[in-house]
Amino acid sequence: MAKRIDANDLNVYYGKFLAVEGVNINIEPRSVTAFIGPSGCGKTTFLRTLNRMHEVLPGAHVKGKVLLDGDDIYGPGVDPVTVRSQVGMVFQRPNPFPTMSIKENVLAGFKLNGKRLSKSDADAIVEKSLRGANLWNEVKDRLDKPGSGLSGGQQQRLCIARTIAVEPSVILMDEPCSALDPISTLAVEDLINELKNEYTVVIVTHNMQQAARVSDKTAFFNIAGTGKPGKLIEYAETSTIFNNPVEQATEDYVSGRFG
């Protein structure tokens, strides 16, 4: 199920603007990797190149390679839709589909693609995904109610359930807890810990305690100044990054001296 990700000399451009430069990173399967760094340093941009979501913006393109278990996702003839069905994504703000019920939201990956599911299959997927997202007990009695009626934390876990329902190999999370209260954050962090048994999880976070709590390895991104490209400064075991980093910039950032 879970696949490894390798980026080789990856440059990300918005039109002519070089946003992220020269990223080399190897992300192991069944692990949690956290991206930290100041705002605008390109960690979200880099995350979105891992499932080609950055291409939603006109003019965005990359140079270099991103390998998903050895297959280049930017290779000629690769359909971004195929990539995205293997690399799921959870966004900063919970975004359940407002026109759909909780159940339909979980099944959105199938329903929107026009796949027919038998009722028993659909029910099984809904229960498995919602249990996987630690949401089943809270919503099992109101599966036909609108998803937008849930609290923010529940909505975010619904979005995670929606993502794992289509059984991707990798789950990308773009600051999944920044719009949530501490209790909901705790629920999502517990969930991330469970998810790594089956998936490769990559998470962008501004919260360094969160990175320390949930991740196995941490990547620190930084930017030299406005208009300059973001770079991967240091990538190591989380304990190394937070306790004895190699780079001075990393130490300054994690110890709160800047940023």
């Binding site: 939603v56 994504m89 975004n95 929107l112 929606r162």
Partner: peptide, 27 residues
């Protein structure tokens, strides 16, 4: 219609015309 919904649909591996037809238009 919030862009987030289009992105959510795209991230699930849904093609653009299906996203338009089944997410954007119903919303």
């Amino acid at each position: 219609v919030p862009n987030e919904l289009r992105e959510a649909s795209a991230a699930l591996g849904v093609r653009k015309w299906r996203t338009t037809l089944k997410v954007v238009l119903p919303t």
